[in-house]
Structure formats: structure tokens, C-alpha cells
Design a protein around this nucleic acid. Structure first.
Lengths: 197, 197
DNA sequence: CAGGCACATTAACACCGTTAACCGTACACG
DNA sequence: CGTGTACGGTTAACGGTGTTAATGTGCCTG
């Protein structure tokens, strides 16, 4: 078993290729256009090979979704280390959310089943989402030490406001320029954070 | 053949049957389970018949979406006749939005391409959406007579807040009870309207 | 009776997700 | 050395999808 050293690496390479190809197709043609065969063609394999790495399309989409939440979580922690002020933290994280959604729209779409993307695994089952939620709740708590239920409510409001503006801005970007939507987003999130005082 | 048994059905009846069948399947199994053949089976026709009424799935979905916006528009006008106070009007319309989304989720999903529903026709091309938008903007203007751009911005905020909370409440309903989400929704919308004063 | 018309169906094409069967190669072992 | 076997990958197939062309079928009219 000398070749054990090389195999896993190429294995990981192929796996990453599948994911990045799926994302590329989704970004260019929408999630509706992503098919196993198209992915297989792009990585120059036959379709069944994909099933060696993911037990079906569901699992592949779920893996990509998880990648999204994990990335988001990393960005959150970057902000947490960068700032200490809770107000600044929450505002900066709001901006992270915007940048993430607009720079990697295909990820944001599969995370929330937007624009034809469909991953039947419930989003709330993702551990990474749980981590993301906890981070936000922690920030809110740090300058509004209320009851746990009250915190959850504020978190829900923050999330809804952010998600709603992002989702609408994405679908309306042909009729309302993104710069304008972004300005409104920043202002709204700033006001939300301000109101928490 | 046995075609004698089938009762003659009017054009409108069949058309309505196609739409209501599509909605029924979508409601029970999700939009990604809706297929032309399944619809045809349910209305006891062969698949090509559907194409006599709608030039492809796209057009069918778009028609259903339009039905949604039209219904919403009717509800809006009902509220407009019922109340004169702008504050009351906007709040009641917010509640309409919630009820609509939760009682007819398959409509709300196809209107905004949620949960696997996908209608490639841009939503902003719907005349009914335009009418809905105008109604909201009119209300906002009636008690905040600012510049047109400012009104559009407030409308965008109202819409995003409503849509965000509804979308999240729908996807999270297994982990957060709808009654709780509804309470938060009402409170948030109430505060939003209040802030407009 | 022939023709045309309206309606509906069958058959086909090119895809899709998924799986079973197969094939060649390289390595391990008798 | 020969042989078996495990592995990496393929082809082929099944049932399903959207969509369209060709084909009936019954009925009304000239």
C-alpha cells in the first residue's frame, strides 16, 4: 500500500473539482442548469464517478451549502477578533453578509434555496448555521443582556432584515442598481444596530 | 375509443384545472415535484394538452405567479377601502402579506422563486407586481410626503422586512413555531409603521 | 360520400438522476 | 511465473422530465 500517499490527495482534488464545477455552472447558468452529467463532463469523468464522492445530488448540494456557512462563520470570527465594540461587530458582520451574498451568489442561493436552487435537507440541520447563529446571539447579548428568548427574537429580526434586503436586492438588480440597494442596506442595518442601544 | 365517457369541459375549466392541479402538487410535494405529465394525469388528459393552454412550463408558472400578485392586489384594495388612516392601512397590509404567504405558501414560493420553485421570467416584469408596489408607495407617501426616491427607499425597506421575516419563518417553522414568528412579525411591522411618523 | 375541422393521443427526442453490470489494469499471493 | 482479485473507471440501462411532430378520431358541413 505504498500509493496510499498519492491517492487521497487526488481524491480530494477530484472532490474539490466536483464542487467548484457545480458552483461555476450555477454561477453562470443558475442552479437549474446544474446536472451530474454536466459536472462529470467538465471534470472529464463519466457520471457515475460523481457518486463515488457524493451519494447523490442532495448530498453534493448539502456539502456546498455547508461550505457556505463555514466560510461565513470564518468571516464572522475574523470580525470578532478585529473589533471589540458590539455595535461595530454587528454592523461589520451585516456588511460581511452583503458582500458574501453578492460576491458568491450561487452559495447564498443554495444556502437558502433561492432562485431555483433546491436542497431538501433542512437548513437548520447544518452545524455551521448553528455556529453562525450563536455568534450573532452572543454579540446581541453582549450589549443587550436580556432573557434568552428576547435575544432570539432580536436575532430573528436582524437576520430577517438582512436576508430580506439581500434577497430583494438580488432579484431586483436589473431594475434597481445594486449600489443603491447597498446604500439602503447599510443605512438600514446601521439604524437597526443603533436601535439596540 | 372510450373518449365518449369524458364529459366535455370548457376551455376555461381545463385551464383552471391545470393551474389548480399544479398548485395542489406544489403544496403537497413541493414545486420541484410539479411536472407537466403529472398535471396531465391528474386532469385526465395527455401531456401535450397542457401545451394547448400554456406555451411551456415557464408560461404556466408565470401565470400562477401572476394569479398570486393579482390576489394580493385585490386584498390590498380591500384594505384601502376598509381603512383611511395610512398607519392602519400599512399595518393591515403587512398582516395580509403574512396571511397570504402562510395560507398559500406555494403561491408565495413561485412569486419569489423560493424553495425550489423557479420561474425564469423576472418578477419585476409582472404588471400585477407593479400595481402592488404602487399601492404601497401611495400609502407611504400619504403620510410621508417626501421625494419619490425617498419613498422608493422606504418601500424597499418595508418590503424587505416583511419578505425576510416571512421567508425565514417559513424555512424555520420546524424549529421555531409559527405563532412565535407571527408575533415577532406583527411587532416588527408595527414598529416599522410607527417609525414612519 | 368526401372533406375539413377540433380535439386528443401516441411516439419520439434529448435530457435528467441513479444504478447495475462490465472491463482493463495493476498488484498480491501461491 | 501464472492467477486471482481489488480498484478505478466505463457503458448501458431504467424511469422520469420538458417538448414537439405525427397520427388518429369523431363530428359537422358541403
Amino acid at each position: 500500500m505504498e500509493t496510499l500517499e498519492r491517492k487521497p490527495r487526488s481524491h480530494e482534488h477530484v472532490r474539490a473539482g466536483i464542487i467548484s464545477t457545480a458552483r461555476k455552472i450555477a454561477r453562470q447558468e443558475g442552479w437549474q442548469a446544474v446536472s451530474i452529467r454536466k459536472i462529470a463532463d467538465a471534470i472529464e469523468y463519466s457520471a457515475p464517478v460523481v457518486y463515488e464522492y457524493f451519494d447523490g445530488k442532495e448530498v453534493l448540494l448539502n456539502a456546498i451549502r455547508d461550505e457556505g456557512f463555514t466560510y461565513l462563520n470564518e468571516q464572522y470570527h475574523r470580525i470578532m477578533k478585529l473589533y471589540r465594540d458590539p455595535e461595530k461587530r454587528l454592523y461589520e458582520i451585516s456588511l460581511i453578509q452583503w458582500d458574501f451574498a453578492l460576491h458568491q451568489p450561487e452559495l447564498y442561493q443554495v444556502m437558502y434555496n433561492l432562485e431555483g436552487a433546491y436542497c431538501s435537507v433542512p437548513v437548520y440541520q447544518s452545524d455551521a448555521l448553528q455556529a453562525v447563529s450563536d455568534t450573532i446571539c452572543e454579540i446581541i447579548f453582549s450589549f443587550i443582556p436580556k432573557a434568552k428568548e428576547s435575544i432570539r427574537r432580536l436575532y430573528f429580526e436582524w437576520w430577517a432584515l438582512s436576508h430580506g434586503m439581500i434577497a430583494l436586492a438580488m432579484t431586483m438588480q436589473d431594475v434597481q442598481p445594486l449600489e443603491q440597494s447597498e446604500q439602503t442596506y447599510r443605512e438600514s442595518m446601521r439604524q437597526f444596530v443603533r436601535r439596540l442601544r
